[in-house]
Design a protein around this nucleic acid. Sequence first.
DNA 1: ATATTTAAAATATCATATATTATTGCGAAT
DNA 2: ATTCGCAATAATATATGATATTTTAAATAT
Lengths: 234, 234
Amino acid sequence: MINVLQVTERMMIRDKSMTRAINTVGSSTYERIKKDIIFGTLAPGSKLKLDALKQQYEASVSTLRETLNRLSSDGFVEAAEQRGFFVRSVSKEDLTEIANLRILLECSALKTSIENGDADWEGNLVAAHHKLRLTEEKMLSGDTSQKELWKRYDWEFHKTLIEACNSQNLMSLHAIIYDKYLRYQMLVITDRGEAAAKEHKQMFDAALVRDVDAATKVLEVHIRKGLEHTLANM
Amino acid sequence: MINVLQVTERMMIRDKSMTRAINTVGSSTYERIKKDIIFGTLAPGSKLKLDALKQQYEASVSTLRETLNRLSSDGFVEAAEQRGFFVRSVSKEDLTEIANLRILLECSALKTSIENGDADWEGNLVAAHHKLRLTEEKMLSGDTSQKELWKRYDWEFHKTLIEACNSQNLMSLHAIIYDKYLRYQMLVITDRGEAAAKEHKQMFDAALVRDVDAATKVLEVHIRKGLEHTLANM
DNA sequence: ATATTTAAAATATCATATATTATTGCGAAT
DNA sequence: ATTCGCAATAATATATGATATTTTAAATAT
């Protein structure tokens, strides 16, 4: 799931021999609003007035309510009965909870994934790490124009690492938590560029030689350091 | 959260000096449909046609769509773009994933909770276990009329056990997973009555003497045995 | 049998009506 | 003067029914 930065334009899918454009207004507003919450365009705690959203996202009230209800179940929006919707507010406590959850879920998934991953998985991992490293190098050399792309490759790398864990349920829970964690990262201006890149490399190497202990330990440090960095800057 | 068996009638809340009835059609429909999915009234895999639901739950299409979108984010309903909604289908693989997730989340929460629980928590735990034990005894002596109540007390006991874990995020994730697990339990006819009751007692005792290891071990066995029992009967 | 056309059913979206909450203004009491 | 309570009004959320679009199925032709 490229849930974070998913292309919002119409996607093509194969249907028999024809290609046909599909995408509902609902799903595209969902992606757009979610993205705007994660990347801070919609500020934490701010009221989501339906009339205003109607103009902003060019969708009807019903469609917006469907969207906001979904986002509320996901935990990005707060729904106050008969008082409307709000962007989920942020706090250090919440971030700490999110980070701990991410450690719990992702480390568990990583362990199983490393134990079960086949050649396909290794291939995907090599590819994912390669793309991530290239973008990281660009970022480190001062070209910060592609922050969104960088974050997408970060997501793809982490997702690929745990992809062989054999649990759809775990994967989708993790996807949500990852996005919540990302939202906090986008809240602060700076990032841990070089250190994070080094940790990615260590995880990559450990995963390929099937060293579960090393990989999960680095992952935990990776997340915990990210947590500390964000806490210190928010 | 008494999410499973929550009373669907209007609830009273205090507002200044008056009591005032609140409850939207949306939230009550949500609870009702969720309950019907968990308790099997709405069969796994079955199509959720809007017209039919409209009559069944006496709500408009838009309200129902809001509900179904929420349930889809929660994972109880499958939303197929432009093809409508379906009750989430079941499988042994899915149940196994759910059980493993429950072990992961609940054991982690239990550990922290036991480490942090104060006198209030102990009191709540004593009360929760007492209510559960009374109902279990009735069930074991043949009175199976209160299966829903029993399941509610089971939920309250497990919830109370982890309530001092200091993580709202973890608690709400756990609540969803618990309900998914419960759905599978309701699918099969029989239960592990006596054995489960014994395990509850063991967890209760271990929690009170703050024996993290013993408590989490029993919990894991408790869930794993429940998984095996359900797998064998589905 | 397979493909195409047509009809029916169902979903997605919208505009509007109803119910609820929030705001404002005014007068009485402290 | 300031606070509090109350009523009228405005703003907003919730819920509904109607319409447009898409999918499913049934029927016909290749």
